[in-house]
Design a binder for these strands. Sequence first.
DNA 1: CGAGTTTGACCCGCGC
DNA 2: GCGCGGGTCAAACTCG
Length: 470
Amino acid sequence: MLRFNPMNTDNDTCSSPPRALWSVDGNRIIVDELDFFSDRNDDKSSSPEQFDDVSIKNQLLSDPISPNVNTGLQLLITNTGSDESTVDDGSSIIAQEKRLKNEVESLQEKLRRRNEENENLKEMLNDVTTNYTTLQTRYASLMQQLQNQPTESSQYEVVEGKAEENDCFSDEKTRSSTGQNNNKDEKEGDRESSEQQQMWESNKVNKLSTSNATDQSGVEATMRKARVSVRARSEANMISDGCQWRKYGQKMAKGNPCPRAYYRCTMNPGCPVRKQVQRCAEDRTILITTYEGAHNHALPPPALAMASTTSAAATMLLSGSMPSADGVINHNLITRAMFPKCSPSGMATLSASAPFPTVTLDLTQNNTDNNNNNNNCHSPFFPPQNCGSGGGQLPQVIAQALYNQSKFSGLQLSQDSQLQQPSLSPAAAAAITADPNFAAALAAAITSIIGASTSNNNNPNIINSATYNN
DNA sequence: CGAGTTTGACCCGCGC
DNA sequence: GCGCGGGTCAAACTCG
Ligand SMILES: [Zn+2]
């Protein structure tokens, strides 16, 4: 959904970041921003159920095993007890005993169901761990392979034709064409890792003092530098992605009359995530938002899609930059998983060129053509009627698809056949989707695990922040 | 008054 | 070494 502020006639594309990106009351008023997650946050009546996991949640709500319904039962039991006490005045003690007994029973039942849930979740976590171990093993072997064949630069370029052709990617082109040796990566990684260790409050003096973490930081820097670039057609100045951002700079980029704005995540003081917002030079209706880094805190559900996408893209690009076919596999994987019947070249572009590997999501084509191609985008992750269903929904759909994709790419990269059959038991999936808090926490944890696969000295805050508060 | 934005200065890497 | 360009900092400013 495009929300356009008629009062804002300013051509400056990046001067008005949103004030209320994530509102608890759900009645936020978004001025001058493209809302990727509109139907999750505001209008409750506008067909909020877009995806499979949400439909699972719906099933859960009508499921008698659901804790939500269980709460209702508890209330019912309490009412029954009080009804009895009003009927029978003489045997109030017996009635009370009965009521207490019922209460205990219901609590026991509740406990039992919680235990079942825990078992399911444990099982799921085991699956996740197993898949993670598999992935890590594969990653290690690929790294070994990389060390044996250090100079196969041609395979670093997974997809570059599209980016090279378009002036909108001029900065990416610049980055892609510079610095291809490992030495530079290490230097860059040194700087970046010291940044991460010392949070944003650190100053440059501290940065200079931590120059000994060179060995382990190169990969981490790649992770940190991996980017997800979203091209969306929008008059709005900002994409609402569920996070809170603070603008820290604005520059005029060369070759583009529109300024580039720099934002950093402010949901957690130490969060390293940044994003850049810039209009396309050739078509100023196209907004290019580039995300970088992984959040070190739990996120509201709407923010998870983009955040996980960024993290997963980093992971994919990391493996994609190996001297193997992984990059291509992942490229096909991401596009096939999203739009099996769409042309893969136009939707998701994977540029694994050092030092800033970037996944570019081009959402502009479907925004223009969605009236004609409503049935062209069928995906196992969402029903076809949700494809191309309006300006703001499409990005949301894609973000969700990427969120799903990110889970699969991280957990089941080596098992192509399982791509369309996530190994989530229905009960576990229901348990997760029933509770947004847990979903957020778990997704953050998984994202962190994926991120941790690139480094041994991972930031402990990542895991610690992914706690489940109920 | 605090949070967020603006904007010029500064830092750093890279190419010449 | 110098200039250029991208990215970041931080003081001044704005806004609610
Ligand atoms: Zn964050």
